[in-house]
Design a protein around this nucleic acid. Structure first.
Length: 578
DNA sequence: TACGAGGAATTAG
DNA sequence: CTAATTCCTCGTA
């Protein structure tokens, strides 16, 4: 299960010793081992040990006190919110950058469901932070539908997950374990690098997914049955630290579990999505009415669109994608244009993916082994961006990559033919600055001594070098093709974030004022405009034009005016501020 | 004078 | 078609 970064339940990840998580090759995990399922992963460092102890205590308490819901349900009259086995009684500390949501008013009223569901009848509209903490999750589901009779042991025995999909069993909550691992990787942090790392990890997941064999056609009902089985699992113990790759390995890439969960302050539990909101096809044209509703819920919450007439979008995906922007606006005066833009990203991403898949199919060498490696990508601003990143990743993975095994340490999880590198605390220091194709400029601060012109030229050269060598700097272990919007195919907002991600290089030209809220200031408008002009090969670019482009983003929901108008100060809308 | 805001037309991909 | 560019006017500090 992929957890959207910054979810309230991410803190759970802090209970998982990360180095332990990645220490074991995935194939050696034993998801159905009773020993493994009831024990805590052994710590490998002192810090891990402390975390381990904490985790162990909470784990025991967790087992004693948790009750879990069996079947997700949906009430047409409102959001039905059954409890989740993975979002239990863990406390969390909301990261500071959630403060932006304090004034948001998600419009949905969550009503209670009598049987098997937590009573969550609070209106989140007037809520404080905790009430507004929505947990965005989405899963990739398998084309290999595991039958209930299949045993995980067979996978352990033959070390071939690809041929034997893992069975999710009642007593072996591997999904939750993967969830825990993801939580670890997505753990909120004040460190900007960590955030990039989290987002990058999502791309890595996408890479692994993209590398999977084409999924079989699977009926949605079958997926829902699996979903039910997953939801009936016992709580995660976090002791079975099975990499997400395993989950991915059993999930197809054409389906996403797209869920909108909510945080209940009184119960301090996250509640998972309505059942019908799960299993969104990647292709929005294939969305059912429920899929559309799920997507709308998620997007409207993510973008804090305010009151939202859900009933006016009671339609299938094929109809939704045919709506014009004007129709979106008329249906949803507040945020209709944003919804349209978001949907368009999905649509475009799907189109790209389809084209890439077709091209790959045509050019595929039958004997070429697929050895995908880890992508380093820009931070994905939101789920749509993630999808786009995933699409890019898919395209990049169409060409077999060489994966260096000489440095294949514990951060590499090997699954079948696929390699997935996962950043761990032990390796992150060496990765700092190398995670974003934008962020890593190999030069030092020596340019501060140089003239401005030379600096700009150096930057330009470095940008070119960064673009060409980003793939080699992925993790220091693998060589990949980074799906960077290099050259002139970069959006202005991406370019600005690129500059912002390099404070040592461009800090004198543009810098964050409030990183969490996405507020930044252009300190040197001439220089920023020059850089932008060089990137886009527009020698006549100036700040007037650049700022005009920025102002276009107001309407598109990418940027917004700051609360107090300040000169040269702009603010990314929240999804883009990540 | 520099910048913010936004309309309108044009261009590039 | 969309994002960005270009040019413009008007207002503000």
């Amino acid at each position: 299960m992929l957890v959207y970064p910054h979810s309230p339940s991410d803190s759970m990840a802090q209970l998982v010793p990360c180095s332990s998580v990645f220490a074991q090759p995935l194939m050696q995990q034993q998801p159905n081992s009773s020993v493994a399922s009831s024990s805590i992963q052994q710590p490998t460092t002192l810090a891990d040990f402390n975390t381990h102890q904490s985790h162990h205590q909470q784990h025991q308490q967790h087992q004693q006190t948790n009750t879990f819901l069996e079947v997700p349900c949906y009430n047409a009259g409102g959001q039905t919110v059954p409890s989740s086995p993975t979002f239990s009684t863990w406390n969390y500390s909301p990261p500071s950058y959630w403060s932006d949501y304090n004034n948001r008013s998600p419009p949905m009223i969550i009503k209670s469901e009598p049987v098997g569901c937590h009573q969550v009848d609070e209106t989140v509209a007037d809520s404080s932070l905790e009430e507004l903490l929505d947990d965005y999750t989405f899963d990739y589901y398998s084309s290999d539908i595991p039958s209930s009779s299949e045993s995980v042991e067979s996978n352990n025995n033959n070390n071939n997950i690809s041929s034997k999909p893992i069975t999710i069993k009642q007593e072996e909550p591997s999904i939750s374990q993967g969830h825990a691992l993801l939580r670890q990787c997505l753990r909120p942090s004040s460190d900007d690098y960590q955030q990039r790392c989290h987002l990058q990890f999502l791309n890595q997941i996408g890479s692994a997914i993209a590398a999977l064999p084409p999924p079989h056609q699977v009926q949605q009902q079958q997926h829902q049955e699996i979903m039910m089985s997953i939801k009936t699992e016992k709580p995660a113990t976090s002791s079975l630290l099975i990499g997400p790759t395993e989950i991915i390995q059993t999930r197809p890439k054409d389906w996403l579990l797209f869920s909108v969960s909510s945080w209940n302050r009184s119960t301090r539990k996250c509640v998972p999505p309505a059942r019908s909101s799960a299993f969104l096809p990647v292709n929005p044209s294939q969305w059912s009415v429920d899929d559309v509703r799920a997507w709308l819920l998620w997007t409207s919450r993510q973008c804090a669109l305010g009151p939202f007439p859900l009933e006016r979008f009671h339609m299938e995906g094929a109809v939704l994608v045919a709506l014009t922007e004007e129709e979106f606006r008329s249906r949803a005066p507040q945020g209709g244009d944003t919804l349209y833009a978001k949907l368009d990203i999905w649509r475009s991403a799907w189109n790209q993916r389809s084209a890439a898949a077709a091209a790959a199919k045509a050019a595929a060498a039958p004997t070429a082994p697929m050895v995908p490696t880890i992508q380093v990508d820009e931070p994905c601003a939101d789920m749509s961006d993630l999808l786009a990143c995933w699409i890019n990743t898919t395209q990049d993975l169409q060409q077999p990559q060489q994966c260096s095994s000489s440095n294949n340490n514990n951060n590499m999880l090997s699954v079948g033919q696929h390699m997935l590198a996962v950043p761990s605390p032990a390796s992150t220091s060496s990765l700092r600055g190398a995670l974003s194709p934008y962020s890593d400029h190999t030069h030092s601060g020596s340019e501060d001594m140089a003239s401005e012109m030379e600096e700009i030229e150096d930057e330009e050269d470095d940008e070119e070098r960064a673009g060409s060598s980003a793939s080699c700097r992925t993790t220091g272990q693998t060589a990949t093709a980074a799906p960077s919007p290099n050259g002139s195919h970069i959006h202005l907002w991406q370019f600005l974030k690129e500059l912002l991600s390099q404070p040592t290089v461009h800090g004198s030209a543009i810098r964050w004022l409030d990183r969490q809220r996405g507020v930044f200031k252009i300190e040197d408008s001439v220089r920023v405009a020059k850089l932008w002009g060089k990137r886009k090969n527009r020698p006549a670019m100036n700040y007037d034009k650049l700022s005009r482009s920025i102002r276009q983003y107001y309407r598109k929901g990418i940027m917004k005016k700051t609360e107090r108008s300040q000169r040269l100060v702009y603010q990314f809308c929240q999804p883009y501020a990540l």
